[in-house]
Design a protein around this nucleic acid. Structure first.
Lengths: 207, 207
DNA sequence: TGTACATCAGTGAACGCGCGTTCACTGATGTAC
DNA sequence: TGTACATCAGTGAACGCGCGTTCACTGATGTAC
């Protein structure tokens, strides 16, 4: 990848990829703009042609992440087929898979400390991703009789919290951390028990 | 607090308090050793009398945090009285309360990116805190018939994941983030539904 | 196809700054008598 | 109570370094003719 190859547009992506790699290995605040530039084979000054600064670079990674995250879960949801329950399970699995496949994006989104309201674009992408989970939850809950149906937003928040918790506590390469649980199994069983509590799954069957 | 006041021991704590404040406002990797020193009213060089470096300072904050965290939950557990179920609920509430009352410690523990296995002391404190949750879970599950009783470690991991997720997604001051849910209510209702799924709470009652 | 030119992405030198870390030192504290 | 002394916590100057940001520049790219 020669330097002149960056002419006309591809440096932007190259810088984001460099940043994502650095976020993954050193954390969202653990690297400098100069490091990202060097890692992309370019002078620090070149970064300013594409981003306002280090934070802006990370925010763009986060925005891109939210878009991909939303897409991934939307695809998993698959318009609620074959059943809203099965589709909901697919969404929750897609959540974890995304965090594992795109740790740089995930960390930029949830561990960088920057607010989704930083820019309208970022807020929009974030809300859209949240919206996918919310819709999947809503469709699943529609089966319940109205008097036993908790607010979708609350259930959606519960599920996102458990998924996020599993990612943070059991899906990171932290050497020798906590319990030796497989994150997929942990999330699947946790959501299963929770859904039984909602009355969406029969109480007798152990997942 | 005059400079000579630090002679003989209190600088160590003053530096940790400065670090905790900086972690709270700028994140575990968002400040420098010099900043912490200055914030404690002392020369950067003085830090080396008490800590090996910046990471060591943060690790000590984390260790102290785990000890306090364990103590807090142990107290909430209160040897399982008045009932193991009520005590379990108290532990889960104590989890969230701790994260809110001691954000610097909590972030040093869970968001600094350093492994609990960094030092034996840190690992011990971490395991002990985990142990409190595990024991509370175990006691609560003892009521269930053996054939319907999932492993305590798994349930404990589910509960910790949801608690951690609620802290990260709903208990931070991120301006205008996600849903307008009260973190306490969210965790209480989430755990409630989960416990109903376990069969520990009756299925008919909505918490 | 070839040439002349406009564009603008990336360069590289420069700047002032704060960083982590070292070191010989100093002066407040605690203690022996 | 007072004095002489040992200890050692914190100082401040020094170092080399990489940072973010600016700026005039250059040379590859794309296009008009």
């Amino acid at each position: 990848m020669s330097k002149q190859g960056y002419h006309h547009g591809n440096l932007r992506m190259a810088l984001m990829e460099a940043a994502l790699q650095l976020i993954k290995t050193k954390g969202p605040t653990g690297f400098t703009l100069s490091e990202a530039a060097k890692s992309a084979g370019v002078t620090p000054a070149a970064v300013y042609r594409h981003f306002a600064g280090r934070e802006d670079l990370i925010a763009e990674c986060a925005r891109m992440g939210y878009v991909m995250f939303g897409d991934t879960m939307e695809r998993a949801w698959n318009a609620g087929s074959p059943s809203s329950l099965a589709a909901f399970g697919a969404v929750s699995r897609a959540y974890l898979t995304f965090a594992q496949n795109h740790p740089g994006h995930y960390m930029a989104m949830f561990e960088s400390g920057l607010s989704p309201n930083r820019s309208p674009d970022l807020a929009l992408a974030s809300e859209r991703a949240q919206g996918v989970i919310l819709r999947a939850t809503d469709a699943m809950l529609a089966h319940l009789p109205a008097h036993a149906r908790p607010p979708s937003a609350m259930v959606s928040a519960h599920v996102a919290a458990m998924a996020h918790g599993v990612v943070e506590l059991h899906s990171r390469a932290r050497p020798g951390a906590h319990a030796p649980y497989d994150p997929e199994d942990l999330l699947e069983s946790g959501i299963g028990i929770y859904l039984r509590g909602l009355g969406v799954l029969p109480p007798d069957r152990l997942s």
